[in-house]
Simulated scan of single mutants.
Amino acid sequence: MAEFELTRNMTIGQYLPTGSVVHRFDPRLKLVAFSALVLSICFLGGYLANVVALVFCTLLFSVARIPLRYGLSGVKPAIPFIILLAVLQLLFYGAGFGAGGRVYLHWGFIWVTSDSVRLVVVSAMRFVEVIFLSSVLTLSTSITELTHGLERLLMPLRHVRFPVHAFALMITIAVRFVPTFALEMEKMMKAQASRGAEFGTGQWWRIVQRTKDTFPIIIPLFNIALARAEDLVLAMESRCYTPTEDRTSFKRYRAKPRDWAMLAASLAISALFLWIR
């Protein structure tokens, strides 16, 4: 059943080598470009700007040679959260925020205005755009490249005694374990369903009931996470890994003209998003 295919709908944290030009970009500049695009998307408040940003994020899949259907599958797990957020914004946006808009419904403390409707649509589009960008970044960049790129970008913080290497390693391990935990959760759901648990029988909009159904697998999932963490610690210690010491890198990244052109284009597109009203 599609209910148990969690790994198919988990695009963040996986790597899909297609050999595209996006895969060959310098990971440091790729992270800077990704941050600039996400930051600009967070400030988009109009329909036109979000439509342009959504079209751009969709085209990125074609440039990276990643199937668009695979990218759309990453939005599916976030649909219940998007719906819940949309309902809360639509009903409880408040007259204090949407006083300038047209009032469609006013009942007690519930206000539905044109501004609240715009907020719901814009927030959903921004959420999808950020998921698309995150999927393209992780699908086109390996975990090793993400670690080295993030570490190189944060290297100036070492002067203030910030644990740059440990922080970069922590972030990349967290991203890498997202599909791993999705796979473990999928296995536990199938095991529980084979024993008579009600997984995949309820309707997708029954969020409360679906949340109650997942309670029996939360504690086993935490146990697996702790066991995985312990195995990772033992593996790193067996290789004499010491994060506090100065470490060298086997691979040195050198930005090429195409990488700087990509960064300049990303900054220009980010400025275009903010300029569109």
Results as ranks from 00 to 15, higher is better:
residue 96 G to A: 11
residue 185 M to D: 00
residue 193 A to F: 09
residue 213 D to K: 13
residue 242 T to L: 09
residue 8 R to P: 00
residue 224 I to D: 06
residue 84 L to G: 09
residue 262 M to H: 07
residue 188 M to A: 13
residue 244 T to S: 14
residue 32 V to Q: 04
residue 144 T to S: 14
residue 33 A to I: 07
residue 33 A to K: 06
residue 59 L to Q: 00
residue 72 L to T: 03
residue 177 F to C: 02
residue 64 A to L: 04
residue 126 R to N: 11
residue 163 P to N: 10
residue 52 V to A: 13
residue 190 K to M: 14
residue 7 T to G: 00
residue 113 T to A: 07
residue 165 H to A: 11
residue 11 T to L: 13
residue 254 R to A: 14
residue 30 K to Y: 10
residue 30 K to L: 10
residue 19 G to M: 09
residue 187 K to I: 09
residue 270 S to L: 05
residue 277 R to E: 05
residue 223 N to M: 14
residue 259 D to S: 11
residue 160 V to R: 12
residue 32 V to P: 01
residue 156 P to G: 06
residue 28 R to Q: 05
residue 255 A to E: 10
residue 84 L to Y: 02
residue 99 A to D: 10
residue 4 F to Y: 14
residue 228 R to F: 04
residue 208 V to H: 10
residue 171 I to M: 15
residue 138 T to Q: 04
residue 232 L to T: 13
residue 58 T to I: 11
residue 6 L to T: 05
residue 229 A to K: 08
residue 147 T to K: 15
residue 269 I to C: 11
residue 25 F to R: 14
residue 185 M to L: 15
residue 271 A to N: 04
residue 264 A to I: 15
residue 162 F to M: 02
residue 229 A to N: 13
residue 119 L to K: 07
residue 85 L to T: 12
residue 95 A to N: 08
residue 180 T to Y: 00
residue 126 R to G: 06
residue 102 R to S: 12
residue 99 A to Q: 11
residue 238 S to H: 02
residue 99 A to L: 07
residue 71 G to W: 04
residue 27 P to H: 10
residue 129 E to G: 05
residue 197 A to C: 02
residue 198 E to F: 02
residue 127 F to I: 13
residue 271 A to Y: 10
residue 60 L to D: 01
residue 63 V to C: 01
residue 159 H to K: 15
residue 205 W to N: 07
residue 59 L to W: 06
residue 7 T to D: 01
residue 255 A to W: 03
residue 185 M to I: 15
residue 232 L to W: 01
residue 241 Y to A: 03
residue 179 P to N: 12
residue 198 E to H: 09
residue 33 A to V: 05
residue 97 F to D: 09
residue 54 L to K: 01
residue 277 R to Q: 12
residue 100 G to E: 11
residue 155 M to G: 00
residue 262 M to I: 09
residue 249 S to A: 13
residue 174 A to R: 10
residue 202 G to C: 00
residue 269 I to L: 15
residue 274 L to E: 01
residue 82 I to Y: 07
residue 210 R to Q: 07
residue 89 Q to V: 11
residue 266 S to R: 04
residue 104 Y to K: 00
residue 223 N to L: 14
residue 154 L to Y: 07
residue 257 P to H: 01
residue 81 F to A: 15
residue 110 I to D: 01
residue 177 F to R: 06
residue 145 E to K: 15
residue 203 Q to Y: 05
residue 188 M to C: 02
residue 164 V to R: 12
residue 182 A to W: 07
residue 114 S to D: 14
residue 168 A to V: 04
residue 31 L to F: 10
residue 276 I to Q: 04
residue 263 L to C: 09
residue 268 A to V: 12
residue 224 I to Y: 01
residue 205 W to G: 03
residue 87 V to P: 00
residue 40 S to H: 06
residue 93 Y to L: 08
residue 225 A to I: 09
residue 136 V to G: 05
residue 190 K to G: 12
residue 70 Y to M: 14
residue 140 S to D: 05
residue 245 E to A: 12
residue 80 P to D: 04
residue 117 V to K: 03
residue 6 L to W: 12
residue 213 D to P: 05
residue 160 V to D: 03
